[in-house]
């Protein structure tokens, strides 16, 4: 059953005076099945971020629809969208987006607090997740006291604590060194194996090679996709880079 269905998504930006129009997304259509780990790749300016913002309901499409678990996001009111986002989506950002005024623990609790959950329940939710992500000892620290990789793991914990249907990751390795990147990708892979649905936007081949399916976006459309099948991460890496080379040199659609 598909957990996310994206149909003919179009997004046109108009400049302030309304004269020039930029089409960020032309017509994007794809779906994500429950338990999948999908990577979306594309060059800068290909519309990746716009797509993710629309999926996160932070932005509204010009036309087309987004169905999450059968519910149309584009028609919801802002307050309903915020609640929906809190309950069903988990976010991991390139810049971590942890609030510097909170300890890591409180940052992780944030979505639950906003949902009005009792504190005891939060603690019950947190301990297995913190254990799994190896941040048990860091919970009382403030973001400025820990490394980028540790911050990102806290951000993943924050995304997981609501047990969301879908995790949206926007360039999660973009601000990390290679060791931290590997650790994070391993964590995402583990989550995937435990049944978590993940949608990741990236332009790192390394990151994409951990996914179960890779979509390529070019000029506002889904241009190509690769299924992992039973190949290893290294083999997938090779396939992705071949595809990218082909895209860049203007080769025909495979």
């Amino acid at each position: 059953m598909s957990i996310l269905e994206v149909n003919h998504l179009q997004k046109v930006y108009t400049t302030r005076l309304g004269s020039a129009k930029v089409e960020a997304l032309r017509s994007v259509t794809f779906s994500v099945e429950e338990g999948e780990f999908v990577a979306i790749m594309g060059e800068s300016g290909s519309g990746k971020t716009t797509l993710l913002n629309i999926l996160a309901a932070l932005d509204k499409p010009t036309s087309g629809s987004v169905l999450l678990d059968g519910q149309d996001l584009t028609g919801l009111k802002e307050s309903a969208v915020a609640a929906f986002r809190r309950d069903n989506l988990g976010f991991v950002f390139q810049e971590f987006n942890l609030l510097d005024t909170f300890t890591l623990e409180d940052n992780i609790y944030l979505p639950l607090v906003l949902a009005g959950r009792p504190h005891r329940e939060m603690q019950q939710y947190l301990s297995p997740i913190a254990h799994q992500l190896g941040i048990n000892d860091l919970l009382k620290k403030y973001p400025y006291e820990v490394s980028g990789g540790q911050k990102q793991r806290a951000a993943v914990a924050r995304a997981l604590i609501t047990h969301p249907k879908l995790i949206l990751a926007d360039e999660p390795t973009g601000a990390l060194d290679s060791k931290s990147s590997d650790e994070l990708l391993t964590i995402l892979g583990d989550l995937h194996r435990l049944g978590q649905t993940i949608l990741m936007v990236t332009h790192s081949v390394k990151a994409a090679s951990h996914a179960s399916r890779v979509l390529f976006i070019k000029d506002g459309e889904v241009f190509h996709q690769i299924y992992r099948g039973d190949v290893t991460n290294e083999q997938l890496y090779q396939k992705i880079s071949d595809t990218l080379t082909m895209l860049a040199t203007g080769g025909e659609r495979a």
């Binding site: 802002e78 915020a82 809190r86 976010f91 987006n97 944030l110």
Partner: peptide, 11 residues
């Protein structure tokens, strides 16, 4: 940031 983690603008 707060908007991204699920608060409405009004909140």
């Amino acid at each position: 940031i707060m908007q991204k983690v699920g608060m409405t603008k009004r909140e």
